[in-house]
């Protein structure tokens, strides 16, 4: 799996649909500019955003407003394409801890991240997903953040990395942690010093602070460098109910709900 590039509302969703069908999971990214409506006041936007529209009106930070709107439009369009529905037919709602979900559509789990000009969306029919993105060059080293971000085991491992790659390694660990914490609906509530990941050159696994294994085989973790500049990570939970393979692909994600008033006649 690699993140798929989307070039705006007119782009084809076929690659995303195919990936969800074959592996159950897809991560995609797009530029804010490709999804930002020209006019944030246009009447259709309220319908497109639903109850999120109220939040938009409370935002004054312009780049945040843009990312907020663009990311929600991208998420709903991607999910709708995978489900075979219209974006406006889906309601983006939030769990008590703030985690977004498609209300009533638990067969497709979603996650959202944005930074600078980048939007990232994760979709899975296997269970749960969390995604996170950060500029790979963003300075995190030497700001007093390492001690808040890393487990003792990770601190050692980061120091073992050649100096020029150290900051990048810290950004990778950070996005993995955010991705996992978002997948379980916790965001910054989970203390990032309490779980960690394996060093860069290995298959990513979750480790406890002392380096012993953390979450089990039902979790998988991925990191990619996207567009040569962004680190994107995903955490996927799959308890193995069977969201992949030909049998799964034959099962409709959004079965047509028959109108009972028709059969009653």
């Amino acid at each position: 799996m690699r993140p798929l590039r989307n070039r705006g509302p007119a782009d084809s969703w076929l690659p995303v649909r195919r990936e969800v069908e074959s592996s159950g999971t897809s991560v995609l990214y797009a530029a804010v500019a490709d999804w930002l409506p020209d006019d944030l006041e246009r009447p259709g936007l309220a319908a497109a955003l639903g109850r999120d529209h109220k939040r938009l009106l409370e935002m004054n930070h312009v780049p945040n407003r843009s990312r907020f709107v663009a990311s929600r439009l991208l998420l709903k369009s991607a999910a709708a394409a995978v489900l075979g529905a219209e974006p406006d037919e889906l309601e983006l709602a939030y769990k008590p801890g703030g985690r977004p979900h498609l209300r009533g559509v638990d067969q497709l789990d979603v996650s959202l991240s944005h930074t600078e000009e980048l939007l990232v969306v994760g979709l899975t029919r296997n269970g749960r997903i969390g995604v996170d993105a950060e500029n790979a060059g963003r300075r995190m080293l030497g700001l007093g953040t390492e001690r808040q971000v890393c487990t003792p085991y990770e601190l050692e491992a980061v120091l073992a990395v050649p100096r020029e790659r150290r900051n990048g390694e810290l950004v990778r660990l950070w996005t993995l942690k955010e991705a996992y914490s978002k997948a379980i609906g916790q965001g910054l509530r989970f203390r990032f010093t309490e779980f960690g990941f394996t060093p860069e050159d290995r298959q990513v696994q979750m480790l406890r602070p002392d380096g012993t294994p953390g979450a089990g085989w039902e979790w998988s973790f991925h990191s990619w460098l996207v567009d040569d500049s962004y680190m994107v990570s995903a955490a996927v939970y799959d308890p193995g109910f069977g969201g992949r393979g030909p049998a799964a692909a034959a099962r409709p994600l959004l079965p047509v709900v028959p109108d009972p008033r028709l059969s009653a006649r």
């Binding site: 489900l83 209300r103 009533g104 047509v256 028709l262």
Partner: peptide
């Protein structure tokens, strides 16, 4: 009017 299938909006209504 009843059509062949219902809009997926009904899923969100069921949740509410």
């Amino acid at each position: 009017r009843p059509a062949g299938g219902l809009s997926p909006r009904v899923y969100a209504l069921a949740d509410r």
